[in-house]
């Protein structure tokens, strides 16, 4: 499998990159880690004339504690994210998620920016970013703007990012201290996309749920924010009954396709099971388990 030929660009600055993206338009493609794009190019499902490699843009790398947020450069690899003490301290769901993405080699190349920006509903980080209420920082010819992860995904490979914009960073508001979290992913084997997966963030105050967010992976055309499911937990003790109700509500918003992972009914049910299990685990962690 040989990709079609292209011209290679390695811009030295973000502005140069944005300029190239603007210049080549539909004939250009942004190369981050490449582990989604290059297989597509080998199959000739993607045949860009120009590849704009962000490799040299050190300003897009790194994880920084900015007080209220942690700011993650878009070119930060999954492996770098996994190793980050800053991320582990403020937001441990990130490391838990990285561990179930692809495999060690792929995580060395794959970037957080690529994972959240390309709009593949099979990617794991979009749901996690939704559950965390993350903000995406985009740079275009006219400068920078911010847009929330919730609302960013419009359809399969279709996002709020304009064709001439580059995702430069992800701002993750720190969840409340002592929060519970879990990312539960059902997959057939290492390296697989999710049959269904659920990200849960929750916090307790005096034994009652004071904050909850739930989002789902690969059971719809985009990652799905299970807002009603999350809301149903608020004020409850998150007991078994509340967990089951939230799982039911999460299942209701699913719209999976039938594929090699299983038929629609199975995948919808698995979204429920993953939600249920993620809530239970998050609860345990919130209680200091």
């Amino acid at each position: 499998m040989i990709p079609a030929n292209f011209d290679y660009h390695r811009p030295a600055s973000v502005d140069e990159a944005v300029g190239l993206i603007e210049q080549y338009g539909d004939d250009g493609a942004i190369l981050a880690g490449g582990h989604s794009l290059i297989p597509m190019m080998k199959l000739r499902f993607a045949t860009p004339g120009h590849l704009i490699d962000l490799k040299a843009l050190d300003e897009l790398r790194g994880i920084e504690d900015t007080g209220a947020d942690i700011r993650i450069g878009a070119m930060t690899t999954q492996a770098e994210l996994r190793a980050s003490a800053v991320a582990a301290e403020a937001c441990p769901i990130l490391a838990e998620t990285v561990d179930v993405i692809a495999d060690p080699q792929v995580r060395n190349m794959g970037t957080l920016g690529g994972n959240v920006a390309n709009g593949d509903p099979g990617n794991d980080m979009p749901a996690v970013m939704m559950a965390l209420g993350a903000i995406y920082v985009l740079r275009g010819p006219g400068g920078e703007r911010e847009t929330p992860a919730n609302g960013f995904y419009k359809g399969i490979f279709d996002t709020e990012r304009a064709a001439n914009e580059l995702l430069v960073a992800i701002r993750v508001p720190k969840p409340p201290a002592g929060h519970g979290y879990a990312y539960k992913k059902l997959k057939r084997k290492v390296g697989d996309y999710a049959t269904a997966a659920a990200a849960v963030i929750l916090a307790l105050e005096g034994g009652a749920c004071s904050h909850a967010a739930i989002a789902l992976t690969n059971v719809g055309p985009t990652a799905l924010n299970a807002g009603d499911a999350a809301k149903s937990l608020i004020g409850t003790s998150v007991d078994g009954e509340a967990q089951a109700r939230a799982a039911e509500l999460a299942m209701e918003i699913c719209d999976p396709v039938s594929d090699m992972h299983g038929p629609v009914e199975y995948r919808r049910n698995m979204a429920g099971v993953m939600t249920y299990r993620a809530i239970a685990e998050a609860l345990g962690r919130a209680k200091g388990g």
Binding site: D103, R188, K189, G191, D192, Y193, M260
Partner: peptide, 26 residues
């Protein structure tokens, strides 16, 4: 896990190591 499936019009499904089950060490 291993299975070569076909749809009604004879498209072979899952003919890559993504879908065709190759167990890893895990």
């Amino acid at each position: 896990g291993q299975e070569l499936l076909f749809d009604d019009i004879g498209n072979v499904l899952g003919a890559s190591f993504l879908d065709y089950f190759m167990p890893t060490a895990v």
